[in-house]
Nucleic acid binder design. Structure first.
Lengths: 204, 204
DNA sequence: GGAAAAATTTGCAACGCCTGCAACTTCGCA
DNA sequence: TGCGAAGTTGCAGGCGTTGCAAATTTTTCC
């Protein structure tokens, strides 16, 4: 790797760290691109040659992690059922998303939970990985109905998103988060009909 | 209703229609707030006293419709199981979301499918109605576990969102969309394990 | 080692969204 | 008819974002 590439990586990192630090210190809206650029020792214009927008810098880390996970997912033992494979894939992704990365993980989570616009962006990303799940799914079972694949991915990702967000927002410990995820997977796999409270009549 | 209120309603409508017409004619990004204001015969500044942002004008109609649905939902016969009630609620909401409203319905859908930022906003709204589903659910079954409620809402809304988006993007007819929704509900209710293709081993 | 070529950074100007503010107009009510 | 409330408007300005061309740095090749 040449000097050029090394420097670019370094600059990218400097910008991201400066941005997250400032966001933590004085808030997201209160930090301008100019502030970030100054803190990272680059020109404001350069910021945009590394990140397409101010919002993207918040998701840079998690995106890298997700990309790694996707690469690792390509090779899976072929002797498990598609359902088992999907469970694995989902768990690995959750691991990547839910783990606190570096020292700024908590800040990123807090920012996303607080700012509606960041939340929207996060949901968009979630939606994009849902597309990925559809592709992986149709690859695992080529005979599957298109609608089925779409629905399964939607319900799976939707359910997982819901638990994780809930656990995050309510300060669950990693352990309780994990057991909540297990519970969520079970519900999605066995159906809403398997939840007793749902099929009991309200009369009492 | 006094003159004042009537005029406001009228102005709001004028702005929304002008905006959607211009979006359709020359594109979303190609239309500025100034253009919309001029077409609606108000000052640019006034636009923002009716809609908080340019994006919101795209969702104004659907938001109104959803609000109506929510009001109608409050009163449900108490002799059905929560699961049945949820199905009704979901179907009514889908009806509201999926139907083409007025002459601009198709344009709104197209805009949202095309523009990533609008897609993100749409997902955020979806997420908000998911919160509503959680509330309604815990109301229907007060004894339900918190996590269960969150997961169920997430899977339900996630699955529905996935089918509808897919049908929309692929130009399904209303009939085939409806049957796809039924299929989706069945999958979510009975669980992914009920889909044969998923539990068959890949070996053949 | 040095010059040409390629990639990167930078400053500049501009556009468009959005907001706060203060003046102005319109409406409702007594 | 006049007063207060509500709504509209213009203005000034901040901020994110982009295109462009000049300046700088890195690579490549002689």
């Amino acid at each position: 790797m040449g000097l050029r590439e090394r420097k670019k990586r370094q600059t990218r990192r400097a910008i991201a760290e400066a941005a997250l630090r400032l966001f933590a210190e004085r808030g997201y809206e209160e930090t301008t691109i100019a502030d970030i650029a100054q803190a990272a020792d680059v020109s404001p214009r350069t910021f945009f040659s590394y990140f397409p927008s101010k919002e993207d810098v918040v998701f840079a880390e998690i995106d890298e992690r997700l990309a790694e996970v996707r690469e690792g997912i390509e090779r899976r033992p072929a002797d498990e059922t598609p359902l088992e494979s999907m469970r694995r894939i989902v768990l690995e992704m959750i691991e990547a998303i839910a783990a606190e990365h570096g020292e700024y993980g908590a800040i990123q989570v807090q920012l996303v939970l607080e700012r509606p616009s960041l939340q929207a962006r996060a949901l968009k990303r979630m939606n994009d990985t849902e597309q990925y799940v559809v592709e992986r799914l149709t690859e695992l079972c080529p005979a599957i109905d298109e609608i089925d694949a779409v629905v399964i991915a939607g319900a799976l990702v939707g359910g997982m998103k819901a638990v994780i967000t809930h656990c995050r927002a309510h300060g669950y410990t990693p352990q309780s988060t994990r057991s909540a995820v297990d519970r969520a997977l079970a519900i999605v796999e066995h159906g809403l009909g398997s939840v007793p409270a749902l099929t009991r009549r309200a009369a009492e």
